[in-house]
């Protein structure tokens, strides 16, 4: 169980790293798809079938959106300008190295604090349900849904779901406003 999850996490890490360093944007998007679909298998192993279904749908839709964005724009990654020819080349190279160093220092700090704080968490698989005990024991008779997850989403935490619907609606309105071309005077 843990070994399988570890293997899936290694695949996800490889996909993520390749997505960041790929020269072709289309292959970056495809390896991002590897991360998402590996996450589906991880959800199935962790006994969360509802999440696996939702993740399959969401991953497919976001891949379709990303690929269609690449089709109407470009799939080439940015060309690295040959730094040696411009004036102040050593300064620019120094600045790039400073960016990478700063990013590595920040991620290292985060990792240190995370490892320090995982000591307080219960180990993997030893989790004790505190709040959900009530939901598990009496959720089915209170809500009438034998699927406890949907019982919580739509009944115990209905207001959260209402807020989610609001966020979704706002995002859709935002996308429509961004992509609206009717009524524009200038050509974009």
């Amino acid at each position: 169980m843990e070994e399988a999850l570890l293997f899936i996490l290694i695949i996800m890490l490889a996909g993520a790293l390749y997505a960041l360093y790929a020269k072709d944007l289309l292959s970056a998007v495809v390896s991002y798809g590897i991360v998402g679909f590996a996450l589906v298998i991880a959800f199935l192993l962790l006994q969360a079938p509802d999440l696996a279904i939702v993740q399959v749908v969401v991953e497919t839709i976001s891949l379709v959106i990303m690929i269609s964005v690449l089709i109407i724009s470009t799939r080439e990654d940015l060309q690295e300008t040959p730094v040696a020819k411009i004036k102040g080349a050593s300064y620019i190279q120094f600045r790039h190295m400073m960016y990478v160093a700063a990013a590595l220092v920040i991620t290292g700090l985060f990792l240190y604090f995370f490892v320090a704080s995982t000591a307080m968490l219960p180990a993997f698989g030893e989790h004790q349900t505190r709040m959900a005990t009530e939901y598990v024991q009496h959720g089915a008779e209170k809500t009438g849904a034998i699927n406890l997850v949907t019982g919580i989403v739509f009944d115990f935490r209905g207001y959260d779901t209402l807020g989610e619907a609001t966020v979704l609606f706002t995002a859709v309105i935002g996308v429509l406003a961004m992509l609206r071309l009717v009524g524009k005077k200038e050509e974009l």
Binding site: L46, Q47, A48, D50, L51, V54, Q55, V58, I61, S62, H127, T129, M131, A132, Y135, V136, G139, L148, V149, I152, V153, R157, D160, T161, E164, V167, L168, A171, V172
Partner: peptide, 18 residues
């Protein structure tokens, strides 16, 4: 398994897509 994080993440995945 704890159904509460699953319900939370079910919401978070959809918001992430948006």
């Amino acid at each position: 398994v704890d159904p509460l994080p699953q319900a939370m993440i079910l919401t978070a995945i959809v918001i992430g897509l948006a």
